[in-house]
């Protein structure tokens, strides 16, 4: 790999990467089933082309846009990010995609656009997991507008130099590396600029466990999992005897993003 310039570290970590086989076989994508291996088994039913994304809400331009047209004017960038799951494991994955902020700016959000709400496809024909109401479908997520505009926030279309695998949220998914993985919503069909904090799926299901912000924070424990440490699922060796590693505030991206939350009590706004 090319040497990484100082300051670039946040965008392309040099830590040992997760194997492609592992990143594509161990997924939480409940639309295809709640087992970790269900998405890899069933996501082949997903039709990723043609794919349209509806842009709605408080912006000068809105409407349904074909994925190609949405991405065309933007240069694809590579990012290598840590991904920390709320369940206490983490991966290191090379993504490719476009910065969300650059994409959103083209639609000229108005002053009322304080938050951005995202929706995943919910088609029972393509997604067998929808038959069981493990969460309320469709899956929804959201970011505050400044989080959405942050240069680290990515809309991914690829991984490991290939197309994004369907079980990883093809053809278009969010990556917010300083938040727990469930914030990084998959297979996006709608992006809406809204004025008030939008509902988010896991928060709706269990508000005491999953907050709107869900920034990775070793000092705020989840009721079921300590968030102080994590199992790093990376490298090619056996991980049976691998050591835990400490979890870092904002998943190691504090230098880039902590200022977004200046003055906020992160225990309250977990």
């Amino acid at each position: 790999a090319a040497p990484v310039a100082p300051g670039e570290e946040a965008f392309r970590t040099t830590e040992e990467q997760t194997r492609y086989e592992d990143a594509t076989a161990y997924n939480n994508f409940y639309e295809f089933g709640t087992g970790k291996d269900d998405p890899a088994k069933y996501a082949h039913r997903l039709r990723t082309s043609p794919w349209n994304v509806e842009i709605a809400g408080h912006a000068e331009t809105t409407g349904v846009v074909a994925l190609e047209d949405l991405l065309k004017p933007l240069a694809v960038q590579e990012r290598i990010y840590r991904l920390r799951c709320v369940e206490g494991w983490s991966m290191v994955i090379p993504w490719s995609g476009v910065p969300l902020g650059e994409l959103l700016a083209r639609f000229k959000p108005t002053a009322q656009a304080k938050y951005v709400a995202f929706t995943t496809l919910a088609d029972p024909e393509q997604m067998p997991g929808l038959r069981y109401r493990s969460i309320r479908w469709p899956y929804v997520e959201g970011l505050r507008i400044d989080e959405a505009m942050h240069p680290l926030t990515l809309l991914a279309t690829g991984m490991y130099g290939r197309e994004l695998a369907k079980q990883n949220g093809a053809p278009l998914r969010l990556i917010v590396p300083w938040k727990y993985g469930f914030k990084s919503i998959k297979s996006i069909v709608k992006i809406e600029f809204v004025e008030n904090m939008p509902p988010t799926s896991w928060n709706e299901l269990q508000p005491s466990e999953y907050g709107f912000f869900s920034n990775v924070n070793p000092d705020v424990d989840h009721p079921r999992w300590s968030q102080k440490t994590e199992r790093r699922l990376a490298g090619s060796g056996s991980r049976v005897f691998a050591d835990r590693i400490p979890t870092r505030p904002f998943n190691g991206y504090a230098e880039q993003v902590a200022s977004l939350y200046a003055g906020m009590d992160l225990r309250k706004w977990f």
Partner: peptide, 15 residues
């Protein structure tokens, strides 16, 4: 499973 590395991405969780 441990010796044959058949436990997938997160073997400790699986075990």
């Amino acid at each position: 499973d441990i010796y044959l590395d058949r436990l997938g991405a997160d073997p400790i969780a699986e075990l």
